[in-house]
Design a protein around this nucleic acid. Structure first.
Lengths: 357, 357
DNA sequence: GAACAAAATGTTTGCGTTCACATTATCCCG
DNA sequence: CGGGATAATGTGAACGCAAACATTTTGTTC
């Protein structure tokens, strides 16, 4: 849906908007101050919600604000105060459900805290230099903190000392800081793998996500660990890159292997591809092969068959991430976020293995 | 995929970064000027790429920039010049493929033109007031132009005179301006409906998108028009709201009607729901019922059956939209965008009607 | 109601940059 | 090689606001 037509939204309308002075200059605090009969400083106090202003004065100033149509000039405020209350977000330029959902969460939390967000996207699989470019752009643009929604492992070094100046939050697995705030990737893999094993499958194959993402490795490692715990030697990983296409290719690979009965696919999007490939090869899901994936995207419940998947609370992840950067910016104690838990949603893509296997 | 752990990216690293002065003040043009032995104005000229500076001077200044680690302070520049080179984007807070894809296009075009983008999202089905809030926030934040990725029809009035001050581009159907730039929604509906009719279906049912979106109405109108052209009375519209869930509900409604053989669903996401409901009711797609939808999202090809759909070039739509706002901002002649065309992608969800119908 | 504290308001200054204009260096032509 | 044009650079001032500090008003206490 959603097909745009570029069109200027109704420019002809002259209702009861504040009458601005002849010249096209926007009203400033000086104008408001004059109208309200106070000093600009008082206006500043009122509009920025500072204490110690008489209620009556507040009213008078607000009225003057209305009358003049005044709006705070963020750039000027930023220059004067040294604070921009802006968050930067770096994303990969590919329309993935997870990224957009997290971004929405970031925005929600940011705006609740009075921050605005600027985004910059870099092409997938860019060199670190691209990220640095985006980082610099956002920093120049005044971002006080930066959220990186991209594989960040290989960036840490390149980012170097920049992160001292501007608090930056990514999504690495290692390092202790804030690790309690977000989703445990290993648990995701454990939930998925154990579900399959508990169903009676002898082993579980794995289609991994893009190798540059820390998540991919974490999930692979844990999948492997769970298998070993149960005394089974992990089969080789089938590498993919998060895209449905790569899932499809992985699915073909799997279809070529006769005795596969269970697959842990690292994302729902890839699972669609895997299942398609399996079907084309005459293997039905879940009768012949069970598939469990990760994310619980909006379409997961409407796949055929409906996907059994490990749900990640993306919106909350976004919120928590934003909150964390803001904590860092304002040097306050990290707010304790309740541990965000992944949750196994059992639907129709998993079942006990076929009897003959 | 993508599960974040909030973690400060490597803060310990003291490589060959420029040594900053004792105090933690960021270097300014004054610092650069001192090092380069020129005036701050010259520094300004160099960093903003103005002409009439000797090549040798440029080099000297650039070297000083490197040495000091100077970065342009966008807020200060914005204050002094009255230009922010920032675009604002208002989106609906729901992770739809189309919106994210368009957003990516907006970002790409914006950054090519040297603009940065700030986003603000409002809850779905918000009152106009929410949009105004977002609009004001972005304007205050310095946005010189605004892109609205949301149903804008009912906003035009509320927006009122604001759009004079800040060029705003939405996606209305009506109004002539820029209408040639983007995707013709009626053509989408025509492509879809005629495809079904040409396959031999006697009539085509329609599951519409959210009623607040202009696209929904445009597609409905054209679907109706095409049917009438062919001399068939349009059946009642099955209303939905873009979500897979609403598609599912619509699908159940349809399944309850015996003689339906063809459905034009206003988005791929809804089509997933429709098909699922149909299957549950024992109707197979495309043998019993053909389904054609709109968008060609990444997963469309991996649905079961693969979706026949009308593809919209979202990325290009985003680019064109951004370019249009920038044209407006810079008061230059609208760049001629090649008409963006929707394209029917025939896959497996459509077929001739069953013989007995 | 004097004396003091606290609240409310005002004044000055500077944030980092660009603009408009003034000045100086350089080039070109006769 | 002088002189007029143009290129290259420099010099205030101003952008709109908030920080720091100064001042006035209000409230409170005995």
């Amino acid at each position: 849906m959603l097909g745009l037509r570029a069109v200027q939204v109704s420019a002809h309308y002259t209702g009861q908007m504040p009458v601005r002075s002849q010249q096209d200059r926007l009203p400033t605090q000086v104008d408001v101050a004059r109208v309200a009969g106070v000093s600009t400083q008082t206006v500043s106090r009122v509009v920025s919600g500072q204490p110690n202003v008489r209620p009556e004065t507040i009213q008078r100033v607000m009225a003057a604000v209305e009358a003049t149509g005044y709006r705070l000039h963020a750039a000027a405020a930023s220059l004067a105060s040294g604070r921009s209350r802006t968050l930067g977000v770096i994303t990969i330029s590919s329309a993935q459900y997870s990224t957009s959902a997290i971004l929405l969460g970031v925005e929600a939390a940011a705006s609740e805290e009075g921050y605005s967000v600027s985004t910059a996207s870099v092409p997938q699989h860019s060199a670190p230099a691209s990220f640095l470019g985006a980082f610099d752009r956002l920093e120049r643009q005044g971002a006080e903190g930066i959220v990186i929604l991209a594989p960040v492992g290989f960036l840490a070094e390149a980012l170097g000392t920049r992160t001292e100046r501007t608090p930056t939050v990514g999504h690495r697995q290692s390092d202790g800081i804030g690790a309690d705030a977000l989703v445990d990737q290993r648990e995701i893999a454990r939930l998925a793998t154990e579900h399959l094993l508990d169903l009676g499958h002898r082993t579980v194959w794995h289609v991994s996500g893009d190798e540059f993402w820390q998540e991919s490795n974490a999930r692979r490692d844990e999948w492997e660990a769970v298998l070993r715990e149960r005394g089974v030697t992990p089969p080789p990983v089938i590498p993919a890159d998060w895209s449905p296409e790569s899932g499809y290719r992985a699915g073909r690979t799997i279809a070529a292997i006769p005795d596969v009965t269970a697959v842990f696919v690292a994302s729902d999007e890839m699972a669609f591809g895997v299942i398609r490939a399996l079907h084309e090869a005459g293997r039905t899901v879940p009768d012949d092969v069970s598939v469990v994936s990760v994310d619980d995207i909006a379409l997961a419940a409407y796949a055929a068959p409906a996907l059994t998947t490990v749900r990640q609370p993306f919106h909350e992840v976004g919120r928590a991430t934003a909150t964390r950067v803001i904590d860092l910016i304002e040097k306050r104690e990290p707010s304790v976020t309740p541990q965000l838990r992944a949750e196994l949603i059992v639907r129709a893509s998993t079942a006990p293995p076929p009897p003959l296997a």
